[in-house]
Design a protein around this nucleic acid. Structure first.
Lengths: 139, 139
DNA sequence: ATGAGAATGAGAATCATTCCTAGATTAGCA
DNA sequence: TGCTAATCTAGGAATGATTCTCATTCTCAT
C-alpha cells in the first residue's frame, strides 16, 4: 500500500522521508480520521513536524483533513488510497469511524446528490455523508 | 419568526436581550452558516460578546455550529427554526449555502442512512449531507 | 566525500476562542 | 416610576491549536 504513495510523491518531486512515512503508516493503521494529538501519542514526533508533514502530505493529495461537529481537525488518507467512504461521528466525544456504503447504496446516494444539486444548478465535485450517533462510552 | 424563539428562551429562563436578538436577526437574514468574523462585520459588536451570545444561544438550542471542510466554525439557526436542510460547500473559499432536499429525497436519504447504520449496529441520532462544488468566484 | 537543496526540531508568533472582571442593563416588585 | 438583585456586556488577558522561523541535519546527485 505504501508503494503507490511513494510513486505518487516521487512524481511530484516530494521526498517520502522517514517522518512522512511514519505519518502515513500511522494513518494506515487506524480506522478513521485522527487528530494531531491522537497521532502525536502514537508517533513521539514534535508537533511542529507533525503539522508540517501533514501539510506537505495534504498538498500532495495523500492526506485530507476532516472537521467533525466538535470542530477538531482530524486527518485521514485520501480516498484514492483508502477508498471512498463516509463517517460515523459520536455526538459526545467527537470520535470518528469510517463507514463504507455498499456499491448499491453509494449509487443511490449519488443519484440523490446529483438530483438535488441539479435543482440549484451546481456541478457536484464531491459529497460527504456524516451519520451522528452516540458511542458506547458516551451513552 | 422571532416569536417562538423568544418563548423558547423565556421557557428556559434565558433573557432575549438586544445583543442576542441582533445575533438571531443577523442569522435569519442570511442564506447559510456564517463565521464569527462574517457576523462581526454585520453587527459591529465586540467579538467576545458575539462568542458569548453564540454560546448562550447554542446551549439554549437556538443556534448550532457547523464546521466546513476549511475548518472554519460557522453558526446557523437550529433546525427547529430554519427547518432540516443540508449544505452546499465551495471547495475553494469554503462559503456555505443551505440546500433543502424535497420531502421525498429526504426520505430516501433517511432510508439509506438507517440501512447503513443498521449494518454496523448503531442508532442514528442525526445525519448531515454535504455537497462540495465550486462557486462562481472560485472557478 | 562534497555541495545544494530540502527536511527537521525547538521555540516564537499568530489566530481563533475562552475566561475574567468591573460596570451597565434588565426583570420583578413596591 | 424607582429600587434591588441578578444577569449581561465590553474589553482585555489568558489559553490552545496551528503556523512560522531559523539554525542544524539529512539526502541525493555529482
Amino acid at each position: 500500500m505504501t508503494e503507490p504513495i511513494a510513486r505518487h510523491l516521487e512524481a511530484r518531486g516530494i521526498r517520502y522521508t522517514r517522518a512522512r512515512r511514519a505519518v502515513v503508516e500511522a494513518l494506515e493503521a487506524v480506522d478513521g480520521p485522527k487528530s494531531v494529538s491522537e497521532l502525536g501519542d502514537r508517533l513521539a514526533v514534535p508537533q511542529s513536524s507533525l503539522y508540517r508533514s501533514l501539510a506537505v502530505l495534504g498538498d500532495a493529495g495523500v492526506v485530507v483533513a476532516h472537521h467533525g461537529p466538535d470542530g477538531t481537525t482530524r486527518f485521514e488518507l485520501a480516498e484514492w488510497i483508502r477508498g471512498h467512504h463516509h463517517h460515523l461521528v459520536c455526538a459526545g466525544c467527537g470520535a470518528v469511524r469510517d463507514l463504507a456504503l455498499t456499491a448499491e447504496e453509494e449509487e443511490r446516494l449519488q443519484e440523490l446528490v446529483t438530483e438535488a444539486a441539479g435543482r440549484v444548478d451546481v456541478e457536484v465535485e464531491d459529497h460527504a455523508l456524516e451519520i451522528v450517533h452516540r458511542c458506547e462510552e458516551c451513552r
